[in-house]
Design a protein around this nucleic acid. Structure first.
Lengths: 187, 187
DNA sequence: CCGTAACCTGACCGATCGGTCAGTTCTGAC
DNA sequence: GTCAGAACTGACCGATCGGTCAGGTTACGG
């Protein structure tokens, strides 16, 4: 390793990802993160300019994931568009559980942040994909329900809906099937 | 009016309901609420023992609403159980938009609060009603998706999915239909 | 073996938080 | 008119927040 304890940076990211998603961004202090990691608050602020920078670094990957998803399904349409979007959306939600919890909990307070400016636009384009590019209000309501329902269910703290012993495979398939039904597609 | 400016108490509740739901509980200070209402912070704390009491008074009605919903549908079963639960759930979500936003945003930080202890239990019983009392893991995942999706879509800041000009009637009917489809019921 | 830069610490800062308190103003009953 | 109590204020409190800084420690290239 180049610098042995440069790994501290990664440990800070891991800890803040968990603490932020469990307690929320505002409710988590830098001191709590530092104590959890086992370093001083000053060390934390040595690796990250400020608290905002820490949050931004956590949220950037999930934002990129959505952008990639949109690029991937852009050339598709009809059934294939909807089915691919749903499947990829569920995968993304399961992949970034903690970040999504953080995002949803603190969305109103973070929506003014510049790096999240493209989020409303991304959401709108996700609606398009989920409806098969329909502008029908009812279809868009269904798309909104699917998007928020998938995100929050996939990121539930303890897999509450399934009860704990349910595997991710159950969760994934259940979400995909329910989403497709909600969107009026055969499963 | 018995005491004219006792109306201040109601204005404080209204203001905090909006501010809490827009910025979150932790991120809203008592001073902000007081300034918004136009009184001193001390006046606010005269009407409410502390910040927690203010929050509790905001969340209690929506909790009662859920309890009433559960009592109402308790004797039902089959199709009628599911359809009634969905319809009442959507109505409740539309009725308590701000409180639900607040509840979802700050749920992880509020879950330890005693007056919310019955929330996990209520959630579980809502799952039962939405699945028609099925314990099938897939059905429960669908129920979770419906519950969270309905709540968050109904309480979206600006009726985002419909675009703003859509009426509540559109939103209501769209949510009911999408929910029933997701739960595998004919609309 | 030395110097430099990365890494980290403890002490400290101003601001703001939720909450308290002594005292003042207002109001309605008598 | 008077008086009790509700309604309200401004000043203040300790705690904690995010963030800074001077200086110490460590590791590695030359």
């Amino acid at each position: 390793m180049a610098r042995p304890s440069a790994a501290l940076r990664g440990r800070i990211l891991d800890s803040s990802r968990h603490l932020f998603s469990e307690r929320g961004y505002e409710a988590t202090s830098l001191q709590e993160i530092a104590s959890d990691v086992g370093c001083s608050k000053a060390a934390l602020l040595y690796h990250f300019r400020n608290k905002d920078a820490l949050l931004a670094e956590l949220l950037t990957p999930v934002g990129q994931r959505v952008v990639e998803l949109l690029e991937k399904v852009a050339p598709l349409d009809g059934e294939e568009l909807v089915r691919t979007t749903v499947a990829d959306l569920v995968d993304s939600a399961l992949e970034y559980r903690l970040e999504i919890r953080l995002l949803f909990e603190d969305l109103p307070r973070l929506s003014h942040r510049p790096e999240l400016n493209l989020l409303p636009d991304s959401t709108d384009r996700l609606f398009d994909c989920l409806t098969g590019r329909s502008r029908d209000p009812r279809a868009r309501v269904a798309a909104s329900m699917v998007l928020t329902g998938v995100a929050l269910t996939a990121s539930a703290p303890d897999n509450a809906p399934v009860g704990g012993e349910g595997s991710d495979a159950d969760l994934r398939q259940g979400l995909v099937e329910a989403s497709l039904r909600a969107l009026g597609r055969d499963v």
